[in-house]
Write a protein that binds this DNA or RNA. Structure first.
Lengths: 200, 200, 200, 200
DNA sequence: GATGAATGAGGTTTCATTCAT
DNA sequence: TATGAATGAAACCTCATTCAT
């Protein structure tokens, strides 16, 4: 009913977008509210009209990033077809977003560090990991049920799979010239699939 | 007359040790030099007698951590016996150090974040990852040569293995109550071994 | 609507004024930014909104002082009349400002010391001395052209005159009770005039 | 009677010498006790065995410099001959020491600034100026008595002369390439002599 | 006499945050 | 809604000085 509830929402988005870029480039602590305001083309004080403080801004970014990430996995999960195909679709979507994912990695690691020290942040990350694990588990369970995979502890397998994916990202961002993400991910997953496979 | 050139060296160690704990607890930026001095039981200014500045302190910690980590892998690498056994020895040493490793994880992630923004830090991490990969590759290659593993791209396999290990750490630190590291790591590695195995 | 672009300019002036007094009283290095802020009745951090740092503050003061000083000489230079009268007007203006000039002497000497060590400062002082010399030279040349003074090297005479003036200030500030500036300056100038005069 | 009272004295001299160079190069406040110790090739703490503190060090330097300077003037004063010749001898000795005097100028100006703020320093400088003035006055009075100079206020003349000399130094140090000290000083003095001369 | 080690005190500068307009 | 101006709090680092050896 309100005429334009989106004006405020758009400003918030604009700020979060600018902040994401600035935080990625400088780090949460080094980046200043002024840096962010400049990047957003607004005044420093204006940020406080939309976000309580720097911490809230960081949290807002986290939520947005995790939501995006989850959406991708959820989409793969909802796909019809074989488990291996759905999982492959997931990691291919990861690779497809390469240009967007890479610059966000510093934020991701910083979050991981932050989460080990501040409980509110920890809760957000734990929840995220839990959901990712759950979706992967569900897909794997489908694979087991369909006979694609040998019977196994689906949740452990899900964690192993996610571990492989996120660990591969680390190698990728630190050796982008040597590591061909596509090939490396494909290789890792194939290994896992073979490990999980229903051998004759 | 007593051979005591280590007074200085011991102080440096003392400071680094205190700083490691403080940085782990608060983060590089939030932790202050005074926090560290207090933790070491010395005066703030004394730190500067042994380390040029906060950055140098951070660097010193990084080097020490990476060196320790590498030493563990190197030891496993130098072990006699089958590749699978040597790899297993490695991850078991990781688990054995649990009490020490866990509190250092925030530092590790913070480094990963830092390294993506500052080239000097990046170089240190890249080098570390490269050495880890190299050692794992060497073990895997031995496994291939001995017929334990099917012929494969040993370097890619090494990266996949390290990815699995470090990714599992992430799950562990964020769900320590649900995740049994030992079991989870064992499970992941078994999967990989089966994937790599020379099937009849 | 009111034309008030000078809010910022006035604050800057306010700060410079306070800083001038504090620097004169304590010296560039001993005076703290807090001293200056207190003297200006503002917060320490506010200074940095208007001047980049302590150095910039010092520079701003130098420029202002030299500009004022030059303005006085320029005014005397632009006067009509005989050279001796114009020069006399100059030193009289110096004496008239006694109350303002005296407390600034420490700053002047400090600048002279600083200028011998830092090239950017040196440039400012060199330029100042050069302009003073130039204006005095111009007046003296007029005196030569009009037959008031005997033909001579006007630039050297100008330097000698300025040397006498500034050297007299030194005696004055260090023996204010014994030295009657007015009489002393008048005496010195008369000596010079007689030395320069066109004797029959 | 003491075997070697000069060991201590020599160390003190060594320190003062080093400090003079360091202070001249960096300024009283910026130069650190460690800078000085390094320049003297000794330990920082050793300085305190010979000089109470930084202030005492600065004072010691002042005293030494002023004593040297006075000695030069005293020597000229004690010369036989005409007043103009004795005065000329003085400024020639100044010029002869050029290589030594020039690097000390920053210290001199810094002292002048310091003296206007700290009474103990002021006393030293006032005394110095007073003695210089007294010696010059004595020479000039001799010139008057001998008929070389016209009757005049010898003390005022002395101040004017010293003002000219020290003011010329300022021009010299700030325009060393344009100003030929020798010529400039000679010129200034000639002007004064003519002004003082007993015209027919 | 000489010094390596230590520290208390303090200065410059930065920044998240607030508020009047 | 938006912002220019202001500030309290704090962090890094330096240095004169002391003292045990």
């Amino acid at each position: 009913m309100t005429p334009r509830p989106n004006v405020s929402e758009m400003r918030t988005r604009q700020i979060i977008e600018a902040a994401t870029a600035v935080f990625a480039a400088k780090g949460f602590d080094v980046a200043t509210m002024e840096d962010i305001a400049d990047a957003a083309g607004i005044n420093k004080a204006t940020i406080y009209l939309y976000l309580k403080n720097k911490d809230a801004l960081i949290r807002a970014i986290a939520e947005q990033l995790f939501a995006q990430e989850l959406a991708g996995l959820q989409a793969a999960h909802d796909l019809p077809g074989a488990a291996t195909e759905r999982l492959t679709a997931y990691y291919e979507s990861l690779i497809a977003d390469e240009a967007e994912v890479l610059p966000l990695m510093p934020i991701f690691y910083e979050f991981c560090a932050l989460g080990l020290r501040r409980d509110e942040v920890r809760a957000v990350i734990s929840e995220f990991i839990d959901q990712v694990t759950g979706l992967l588990e569900s897909i794997i369970q489908d694979g087991i049920d369909s006979g694609e995979f040998a019977p196994t502890e689906a949740r452990q397998a899900a964690r192993a799979l996610d571990a492989l994916l996120s660990g591969t990202l680390l190698h990728w961002v630190y050796a982008p010239e040597e590591v061909d993400v596509d090939a490396q991910l494909r290789y890792g997953i194939r290994l896992m699939f073979r490990g999980l496979a229903n051998h004759p």
